[in-house]
Amino acid sequence: MSIDFWINVGVLAGIYGIFTLGLQLNAGFTGLLNFGQAGFMAIGAYTVGILVVDRGWSLWLALPAGIVLAVLAGLFVGIASLRLRSDHFAIATIAFAEIVRYTLQNAAFSGGNQGVLGFDAEWRAVSDWMLPWLATIGLGAYTQLPLFIVVWLAFVALLLMMKGLQATPWGRVLRGIREDEDATAALGKDVFAYKLQSLALAAALAAVAGFFVALNVTYLYPTVFDPTFTFFGYALLVLGGFASYGGVALGSVLFWTLLEGTRLIETSLSAGQQASLRFIIVGVFLLLISRLRPQGLLGNVNEMRVRP
């Protein structure tokens, strides 16, 4: 029982790790305050769900389709709003995520609040194939273990990919933009094109995270993709460390362990109150870390922009 619980925490940490790699790319390495990441995640997940259920696509073909659609959404949002001042950009991305959630809640194609169900048969086949293997090493009883393994393989692979990309001249241009976009443009770099690439890549990462959310909850409904989850992403980002991909992994594991760990504490509170308390904890945590250690555990304070 308790092991199942922690496996599930691990799945969450992996999924939100992937999700937050995109935020780190945007905020930590490009200086873009993207607050619409949950919207991209929803687009990825719903595309997969709808293509499989309504169109009979294979799950494995629907995943790349979901990524492509999220990237297109990223390009669209970027072209519309990347030229705005940074605070206006942040507001515009939140508005985007709200529009996505709102549309999913109210439109016919997304099943409204009923959501989308029954797209994960192909995944369960894979999972059932993995379980006997796991049983040979005595781990066959944990039904979420296959998902845990796949999510973490994907997370580690993507993390290494992002780390590698960041070390290239391409990544250096992004950091230049984070530091001072005018100065970077004055050196001949097309700032807008790079920001667009950063946003599109983050959207792709969100779509992958959305795919795994879909497999995890097996049932898509709009509140799973509440814009608030973007804030969770930022919370674990600043916990692990600003401008550090390793920090995302550390932050995600710590964040979800602490947050889900509170479920194990025996209280006389109602379920609703416990849920509220968890959000309050996240809020207090955001306030404290912004004040006390804005660069996070593994972040580098020299790379933290302190310009007004």
Partner: peptide, 19 residues
């Protein structure tokens, strides 16, 4: 620029390589 604009959060070498 009249008011210098170095990329403060990058190394001196990275400032140069970026150019």
């Amino acid at each position: 620029f009249q008011l210098t604009r170095v990329l403060a959060g990058m190394s001196v070498m990275d400032n140069m390589l970026l150019a």
